Amino acid sequence: TRVETATETAWISLVTALHLVLGLNAVLGLLLLRWQFPAHYRRLRHALW
Rank of each mutant, 00 (worst) to 15 (best):
residue 22 L to T: 00
residue 8 E to K: 12
residue 27 V to K: 01
residue 9 T to V: 11
residue 11 W to E: 09
residue 35 W to Q: 11
residue 21 V to G: 06
residue 46 H to C: 07
residue 7 T to H: 08
residue 17 A to H: 09
residue 33 L to I: 09
residue 24 L to M: 10
residue 13 S to W: 14
residue 36 Q to W: 08
residue 34 R to A: 12
residue 5 T to D: 03
residue 36 Q to C: 13
residue 3 V to M: 00
residue 7 T to F: 07
residue 43 R to L: 05
residue 4 E to P: 04
residue 32 L to G: 01
residue 39 A to H: 10
residue 48 L to R: 01
residue 47 A to E: 04
residue 4 E to G: 03
residue 5 T to Y: 04
residue 10 A to D: 15
residue 1 T to R: 04
residue 1 T to D: 08
residue 21 V to Q: 00
residue 9 T to I: 12
residue 4 E to D: 07
residue 37 F to E: 01
residue 41 Y to I: 07
residue 23 G to L: 14
residue 29 G to I: 10
residue 27 V to L: 11
residue 7 T to L: 05
residue 39 A to F: 06
residue 22 L to N: 02
residue 49 W to L: 05
residue 11 W to M: 11
residue 34 R to L: 14
residue 15 V to Q: 07
residue 5 T to N: 02
residue 12 I to L: 11
residue 11 W to H: 15
residue 12 I to H: 11
residue 38 P to M: 08
residue 47 A to K: 05
residue 40 H to P: 04
residue 45 R to V: 12
residue 43 R to G: 04
residue 36 Q to F: 09
residue 7 T to D: 15
residue 29 G to A: 12
residue 49 W to R: 04
residue 16 T to W: 14
residue 13 S to C: 06
residue 17 A to V: 12
residue 12 I to N: 13
residue 10 A to V: 13
residue 31 L to K: 00
residue 16 T to M: 14
residue 38 P to H: 05
residue 30 L to D: 00
residue 47 A to L: 08
residue 22 L to K: 02
residue 34 R to I: 13
residue 42 R to S: 10
residue 42 R to E: 12
residue 15 V to C: 13
residue 23 G to C: 06
residue 19 H to M: 15
residue 33 L to E: 02
residue 6 A to M: 05
residue 37 F to A: 06
residue 13 S to H: 15
residue 44 L to I: 07
residue 42 R to N: 11
residue 35 W to L: 04
residue 22 L to Q: 10
residue 12 I to A: 15
residue 3 V to L: 13
residue 30 L to G: 09
residue 40 H to A: 12
residue 39 A to T: 09
residue 47 A to M: 03
residue 49 W to Y: 05
residue 27 V to H: 01
residue 32 L to E: 00
residue 36 Q to A: 05
residue 42 R to V: 07
residue 20 L to C: 10
residue 34 R to W: 04
residue 17 A to E: 06
residue 37 F to Y: 05
residue 25 N to V: 15
residue 18 L to D: 00
residue 7 T to W: 06
residue 30 L to N: 01
residue 39 A to K: 06
residue 25 N to P: 07
residue 7 T to E: 14
residue 46 H to E: 14
residue 11 W to S: 14
residue 8 E to V: 10
residue 37 F to G: 02
residue 43 R to K: 09
residue 16 T to K: 10
residue 37 F to W: 10
residue 32 L to A: 04
residue 14 L to F: 13
residue 7 T to G: 14
residue 34 R to E: 00
residue 14 L to D: 13
residue 40 H to F: 09
residue 35 W to E: 04
residue 30 L to V: 11
residue 29 G to R: 02
residue 32 L to I: 13
residue 5 T to Q: 01
residue 36 Q to P: 01
residue 12 I to C: 14
residue 1 T to K: 08
residue 48 L to Y: 03
residue 37 F to C: 12
residue 47 A to C: 11
residue 23 G to A: 09
residue 21 V to P: 01
residue 21 V to M: 02
residue 48 L to K: 01
residue 38 P to R: 04
residue 25 N to A: 15
residue 4 E to H: 12
residue 19 H to W: 15
residue 13 S to G: 10
residue 38 P to S: 06
residue 26 A to V: 09
residue 29 G to V: 10
residue 10 A to L: 13
residue 26 A to I: 05
residue 5 T to C: 06
residue 3 V to I: 09
residue 26 A to S: 09
residue 35 W to M: 07
residue 42 R to K: 09
residue 2 R to V: 11
residue 5 T to G: 02
residue 49 W to V: 04
residue 1 T to F: 10
residue 29 G to P: 02
residue 37 F to S: 03
residue 10 A to Q: 14
residue 31 L to C: 08
residue 41 Y to M: 07
residue 24 L to C: 08
residue 26 A to F: 10
residue 48 L to Q: 01
residue 21 V to F: 10
residue 33 L to P: 00
residue 20 L to S: 03
residue 34 R to F: 11
residue 31 L to T: 06
residue 39 A to L: 09
residue 9 T to Q: 07
residue 21 V to A: 02
residue 26 A to W: 00
residue 40 H to T: 10
residue 2 R to C: 12
residue 20 L to F: 07
residue 36 Q to Y: 12
residue 1 T to C: 06
residue 39 A to S: 10
residue 14 L to R: 12
residue 11 W to L: 14
residue 17 A to F: 11
residue 41 Y to E: 03
residue 27 V to M: 11
residue 48 L to I: 10
residue 36 Q to S: 05
residue 4 E to R: 02
residue 29 G to D: 02
residue 30 L to S: 03
residue 48 L to P: 01
residue 2 R to L: 11
residue 4 E to M: 05
residue 35 W to C: 09
residue 43 R to H: 04
residue 7 T to Q: 10
residue 37 F to M: 03
residue 7 T to V: 10
residue 10 A to F: 12
residue 26 A to C: 08
residue 48 L to G: 04
residue 25 N to L: 15
residue 5 T to K: 03
residue 36 Q to M: 05
residue 39 A to N: 13
residue 17 A to Y: 10
residue 31 L to W: 04
residue 15 V to M: 13
residue 31 L to H: 02
residue 34 R to G: 11
residue 24 L to V: 07
residue 16 T to R: 03
residue 2 R to M: 11
residue 36 Q to K: 12
residue 16 T to P: 15
residue 36 Q to V: 08
residue 42 R to H: 11
residue 31 L to N: 00
residue 10 A to C: 12
residue 32 L to Y: 05
residue 45 R to P: 03
residue 12 I to Q: 14
residue 26 A to G: 07
residue 14 L to A: 14
residue 11 W to Y: 09
residue 23 G to S: 09
residue 15 V to N: 14
residue 37 F to T: 02
residue 10 A to I: 13
residue 22 L to H: 00
residue 13 S to P: 15
residue 48 L to E: 01
residue 25 N to D: 00
residue 30 L to R: 01
residue 1 T to L: 11
residue 24 L to H: 00
residue 40 H to C: 12
